[in-house]
Design a binder for these strands. Structure first.
Lengths: 331, 331
DNA sequence: GCACATTTTTGGAACGATCCATATTGACGG
DNA sequence: CCGTCAATATGGATCGTTCCAAAAATGTGC
């Protein structure tokens, strides 16, 4: 009643030594099944709760994995976080999810805090503006750090990077729009000169080039609001197809177009679930985030357990989902 | 180079005792400013990282707060999580966010894990089907547990509950729809006989009663997909206004109606950001989640620090945002 | 310059689990 | 019935911090 029970109490209750209890906690094969069961019964009887702090202090890992996300408002990232967490939980790891809102300072604080709490590994989708300090801190901690989705800074080269084949996706969309016969195709959203923008832009630019079209690019932070705001500008420019940086931009634009009663082809990128539950349904590059999240977790855990830093991770393939938003009216 | 530095190393470097270093770490007012600065300089010089596990083992708190969410895919919850996390971070707490996906078993595992990691407090939006075991485990741990947004089970009565004035919001919407002159008003979404559903339904039912209308209620798990699926049924039933359980249902329904070219008033609940970036813009009950998240965090922290369990928390007020989706066509 | 209060600093004993080297048990062949 | 080997079980030292009581340094009034 008074204090929380410790392994000592469990040991006394089960009539064994605390070392044995410790072994049971670690699922060690060294204890006889019979003993193990007795100990487990005692733990249950006493409502024993393992103290991870003590465990990690002496030796083992905390069983915590940090997950640093820069935009929890984007369904793509929540989906990613959710599936990574699932995979980690199955492997017995608890996940600390933190949102940085694309703020380098917040990110530094968050990562520092995770290091203090001795996470066993880190999964980071770095925020823009991440500083050397942050990288140094992670490097010094000497734990597996996997960068996902964005490689923000060349200084980060020594952390492995796992992402999807955005360049190919970009080509697929651009070619599709050309094939459908659109004349003035614009690229909308993304922050200039960042790696992920370059990738998603690359296929567009090369396809425009091949097709002999003049590219039109409007940059901006990829939110629903951006698409919503840029509608007029696109209409005025005579654009008849907008290839958006991601689904959020596309959905915002699509809504704005509907409000104005203007018809224009719109495509997204990521293929979040919402794409099929809007009108018109949104053509997008399907990225299978669920699978991606699980694989990222697996890679990280393999590294954590095997000790071998992964090399040259392959890009996860993507494919195009053509839907009504980009098809010529049947009228 | 070899090992991570400890307070002992810092103490040696700064020429003080480890107790002093410890005091500096805790921002104790007992150390002279001069000493404090010298110690901090040494910490920086050695790249010292505090070991929270050891700290919490001896005495202090872990500085971790657990945040248990049941649907991270719902923007409402991510917004809540984000703002709560912000407030907690400002108070120096790290947040462990976990998603349960409305699964009681997952939730139990997640909470058990948080207790093992000795979170200092818990913010829980309980999943349906939560068991007595889970409540017992939390109660035994003897830490502040604040239930938010849902009170799922009468057994949970001894944990304080903080939510918004959903019943009032429900009345506002229903009355608005009656005032606009809609004839057949249906309520769509929510799982039957759950407290939150009852609350959001209450104003609808009483208003229908007063207005002498027959209520029509379609239950279901409140997702975008539900609205999308139920469109035909509502149209066939001759419904001319759908009061939805939340924004997701409303948005799904709205999209399905657009696709069918059918006009029907639609209202949501929560007022997520997306409501103004869709066509037609969605009438909804504005709940100010940002403020709610911060307040929930504040209440929890006050409890954690003051030791006084909060009593009779007031419902946070809500108001109606009337937009195009529920207004009579100007045509 | 002394007595006394106040401010700072300090060793050493915890905290609860894990690891290691060592002890105990049991099984089996001779 | 003993020796040997494998399978299990055990004390005690240990991890890095905080807390406590008590020591040292500093300040104050006469």
């Amino acid at each position: 009643m008074s204090k929380k029970p410790t392994i000592k109490d469990v040991a006394a209750h089960a009539g064994v030594s605390k070392s044995t209890v410790s072994l049971v906690l670690q699922n060690s094969p060294l204890v006889k099944t019979q003993t193990r069961e007795a100990v487990q019964a005692s733990m249950l009887a006493l409502n024993y709760v393992r103290n991870r702090a003590a465990a990690s202090l002496r030796g083992g890992s905390t069983g915590l994995v940090g997950l640093v996300i820069n935009d929890l408002r984007n369904p793509f990232f929540t989906e990613f976080a959710t599936s990574a967490q699932e995979a980690l939980a199955e492997a017995g790891f608890a996940t600390v999810i933190a949102n940085t809102d694309e703020n380098a300072q917040t990110q530094h604080r968050v990562i520092a805090s995770m290091l203090e709490h001795e996470v066993s590994a880190l999964l980071v989708s770095p925020a823009y503006g991440i500083t050397k300090d942050t990288f140094d801190a992670m490097a010094r901690a000497g734990l597996p750090v996997l960068q996902v989705l964005r490689q923000v800074d060349p200084r980060a080269k020594h952390f492995p990077f796992f992402s999807m084949d955005y360049a190919h996706g970009s080509t697929l969309v651009a070619q599709h729009l050309v094939d459908e016969g659109y004349q003035k195709i614009a690229f909308v959203g993304g922050i200039a000169r960042r790696q992920i923008t370059e990738e998603r832009l690359s296929g567009y630019l090369s396809t425009m080039d091949t097709a002999g079209r003049e590219p039109t690019v409007l940059f901006g932070r990829a939110t629903r609001d951006l698409g919503w705001q840029l509608a007029d500008e696109l209409i005025d420019a005579g654009v008849d197809a907008a290839m958006c940086f991601n689904d959020l931009v596309a959905l915002g634009l699509s809504a704005a177009l509907a409000q104005r009663g203007h018809r224009m082809a719109v495509t997204g990128f990521d293929d979040i679930e919402e794409c099929v539950q809007v009108y018109p349904q949104l053509t997008s590059v399907h990225c299978d985030v669920k699978r991606f999240g699980r694989r990222a977790a697996d890679i990280l855990l393999a590294w954590h357990q095997g000790g071998e830093k992964p090399r040259d991770l392959p890009r996860q393939p993507v494919h195009l989902e053509v839907r009504a938003s980009s098809q010529r009216s049947s009228a």
